[in-house]
Amino acid sequence: MKKFYFIWTVAIITVIIAFCSCSPTEPNFDKALLVGKWQSGTLFEKYLSGGSGSTWDTADDVTEAEAQKFTWTLEKSTLTQLHIMEVGGTVPKTYTITTLTDSTMTYRDDYGTSRKFVKVK
């Protein structure tokens, strides 16, 4: 009997949460603002206008010349990076941009981890 109540309680709560979680309208960010070199601590990301980019982390003794390449798309606020590996296989990463100006950018992933970048030359 307790198991039954528990299930129903969870179900009701789930339904309430589901109805209460209507997402707001998704913002539309300018791709041109994304183009450039961004820095977050020792992590760098560089977006080129053709849809290619690269990333490196100087904390791991990696220079810009040794940066790993990716391709990127920006649909409204959804930033998708496709990291195509040399040996075959693709690693997709999707982020939701929350802030994008000519100097700062903030995105977060599906698990709520956000990262703030500043544009550098």
Binding site: T55, D57, D61, V62, Q68, M85, G89, V91
Partner: peptide
């Protein structure tokens, strides 16, 4: 990898 074969985690990619 680093010289001692430690992973450079920032470069790790996998699927």
């Amino acid at each position: 990898l680093k010289a001692n074969y430690d992973l450079k985690m920032s470069t790790l990619r996998g699927a």
